[in-house]
Design a protein around this nucleic acid. Structure first.
Lengths: 234, 234
DNA sequence: CTATTATTAGAGTATATACTCTAGTGAGTC
DNA sequence: GACTCACTAGAGTATATACTCTAATAATAG
């Protein structure tokens, strides 16, 4: 594998594990056992590394959120979209953590991310539309649909931050992809009231599969019995 | 005003304006025209400053989210809660921006924030319960109510980040409290399907008040006409 | 083989950052 | 006047950070 690609891979790995803020270019070079000079031969600066990683992320999500226009949509499609989005979120999880800072440091990134968000919102809205066409949810006026899409986006992009902060974890206890995917439960919660009678049971059963399980509860770690009634559900 | 309080005030101001990550203790001291030594006389380190600011934030929100148990709840109460929470979010807006890093750097803060989140979730859930008691929304089973509360929390705490990233703003164009409060529109969107016939119109009218207005659109800044169909609503 | 280009090492640098240390100052107290 | 004590200045420090520079080595083309 080319050094350039190794740098991207290691950077992503380190960023995901310890946060972009805590990883310097020197760390990345050391982790690869190459010199800083070498790293800077391949990338002009740290921002450039991050930008290229973003482009990969963008490509991945765009690929998964390509809504077919020649056929109607099924519950399996919905599951696929949700699973894929959370997979992407997981693989590039460092990104949303320091998003604001990253966008402030790189104009290209800000612009691209803005357009990326927009495409995602359009895709989510289109999924709602097609779910209605397929008789899975009730059709909604455009205005409501786009507000709902935005809520879905907000829930998805904030779910991981919530998990990390709700956990009583030190650096030791780390998040798992499985826990992350419990965000799907939250997303499906948003759709409940709009389900048609025909599909209600099926979707509720699907949702149930993602229900957060007790064992991972932050409180089950023996920290004592605080009044975590609400978090108990997680 | 005591130097100690001035430090807290200036820190909050600078953090909010430029982000915690971009503000050093030296910046804070310089802004106050005091020496770094002086600052460190009053606070052991940067984390301590942040922790004390958090305690203020916590106190503020706890104060506003004190749900009365001796009477039923009105739409005015709901409006008050929403307005207050977004006011708080605005006044301490630096906090959620770098939340994960801050919690990683200070165990006390992590623990306290966890409990704070939990109290907020309980309060939101309680509000839903009392809205149902007041006949404003339909009553929901505990399980659904807590999942909904969490979604409300996710929308509220992520709304600002969304605005900042959706804006095509450079550092120049900054966010306003008014724009932030359009998050209330998103929160009320979550409640729409559960509204009772009696209150439906009233709540929809309330929601309408917070509808994002075109003029602030990121795209209206003359950047050209991109395919921002979805963001158009904002 | 030679010349060019791509790649790499490794020492080095300017600046920043969080924080420390010493030496006070000024207001009050006895 | 001597003493205390909260408070402050300002120089200084150890370390980190992002990045540069020079020189050397491998790869490749003619």
């Amino acid at each position: 594998m080319k050094t350039r690609d190794k740098i991207l891979l290691s950077s992503l790995e380190l960023f995901n594990e310890r946060g972009e803020r805590n990883i310097t270019t020197n760390h990345i070079a050391a982790h690869l056992a190459i010199s800083p000079g070498n790293l800077y031969y391949h990338f002009r600066n740290k921002s450039d590394i991050i930008y290229e990683i973003f482009l990969e992320y963008e490509k991945l999500v765009d690929f998964y959120l390509d809504i077919p226009e020649d056929r109607s949509i099924t519950l399996e499609d919905l599951t696929f979209y949700l699973e894929s989005v959370f997979d992407g979120l997981w693989s590039y999880r460092f990104f949303h953590r320091d998003l604001e800072y990253l966008l402030d440091s790189d104009r290209r990134l800000r612009q691209d991310y803005r357009e990326f968000t927009n495409r995602c919102l359009v895709a989510i809205s289109r999924i709602f539309e097609k779910l209605a066409e397929a008789g899975i949810i009730q059709p909604q006026p455009e205005e409501l649909r786009s507000a709902m899409s935005l809520n879905v986006w907000l829930v998805i992009t904030n779910w991981m931050a919530f998990l990390k902060t709700a956990h009583a974890l030190d650096e030791s206890t780390s998040l798992t992809l499985k826990e992350l995917k419990q965000g799907i439960y939250q997303v499906l919660t948003l759709e409940i009231p709009y389900l048609t009678a025909d599909y209600r049971e099926q979707v509720m059963a699907l949702r149930e599969k993602y229900r957060p399980s007790l064992p991972e509860s932050a409180d089950a770690s023996g920290e004592g019995c605080r009044s975590d009634q609400t978090l108990r559900n997680f």
